[in-house]
């Protein structure tokens, strides 16, 4: 199992993580932010992930940087989720892509690493007006991760 990942740096709150993607397009700074969904209290955190624009210093999730390291990036984001969950064990992580293709990319990543993820998190996917246990082969609209408390 190749779980090669980029080194991650967190802020003091453990809600913000950054790392650098290294590939043919050079070094691209990435930001992962976990934000509480205020309307329902601090139980659900939304995951935002994007590139840091070097010019204005603002992160953006609409850029397709395509630095030939999707797998390594996915594993790095998973590592941040693991760290976040160890700091906030009762929080659930909501993942919705900003576009359908991005949601599909997340879906493919979760499917690929389902065996490992499933040991640590319960994953639920939203489909056909309902939340259900994540299963390979189904295309979901959103994902919710709940840490299995005894595993970390």
């Amino acid at each position: 199992m190749n779980l090669d990942q980029y080194p991650i740096i967190s802020d003091l709150s453990h809600l913000l993580y950054k790392f650098e993607s290294i590939g043919p397009k050079g070094i691209i700074k990435k930001v992962i932010q976990y934000t509480p969904v205020k309307s329902i209290g601090k139980k659900i955190y939304n995951l935002s992930f994007g590139d840091l624009n070097e010019i204005n210093g603002v992160p953006d999730d609409t850029i397709d940087s395509n630095n030939n390291d999707t797998k390594k990036i996915s594993i790095t984001v998973a590592r941040s989720a693991l760290e976040f969950s160890s700091q906030f064990p009762h929080a659930r992580i909501l993942v919705i892509g900003s576009t359908k293709s991005r949601t599909r990319l997340y879906q493919m990543t979760f499917r690929k690493h389902f065996e490992e993820i499933d040991k640590l998190f319960d994953i639920q996917g939203y489909i056909e007006y309902d939340w259900r246990k994540f299963e390979s082969g189904i295309n979901y609209e959103a994902f919710l991760f709940t840490k299995k408390l005894n595993k970390l």
Binding site: I8, I9, S10, D11, L16, Q33, I44, N46, S48
Partner: peptide, 23 residues
Amino acid sequence: ILIDENMPDYSNAPFVLRKLEIA
């Protein structure tokens, strides 16, 4: 995971707020 005490606060960055709105 290393800690950076001086990391900028991105919790109100437009992409975070946009994603939050979607959520």
